[in-house]
Amino acid sequence: MTVGSQVKGCYSSIKSIEAGLGILAHKTQDAESRQAFVNVEQIISQIKNDLQKQVIELSKQEPQYK
C-alpha cells in the first residue's frame, strides 16, 4: 500500500465520520447535543479539506501508482 492510498483511505474515513455526525445532528431531539454534533462536524470538515489537498499533492508525487 502506497502512502497515497493510505492517506486516501483516511480521507474517506473522515468523510464517512462527517456524514455520520451530520445524520446524528439531524436526528437528535436535544438542542445541546445537536450543537455538539454540529461543532465537531465543522472541525472534521476542516480536517477533510486539509487531507483533500494532501491527497491531490500525493497523487502528483506518485503518478506511477495512479
Binding site: 483516511c10 474515513s13 473522515i14 465520520i17 455526525l21 446524528l24
Partner: peptide
C-alpha cells in the same frame, strides 16, 4: 452500532494521522 462506530472511526483516523506525521 451507529454511534460507537463513528467514535471508533474517529479514533482510527486520529491514529492514522499521527502515523503519517511520524513517517513523512
Amino acid at each position: 452500532v451507529e454511534k460507537p462506530l463513528i467514535l471508533a472511526t474517529m479514533k482510527k483516523c486520529q491514529a492514522d494521522l499521527e502515523l503519517f506525521s511520524l513517517s513523512t
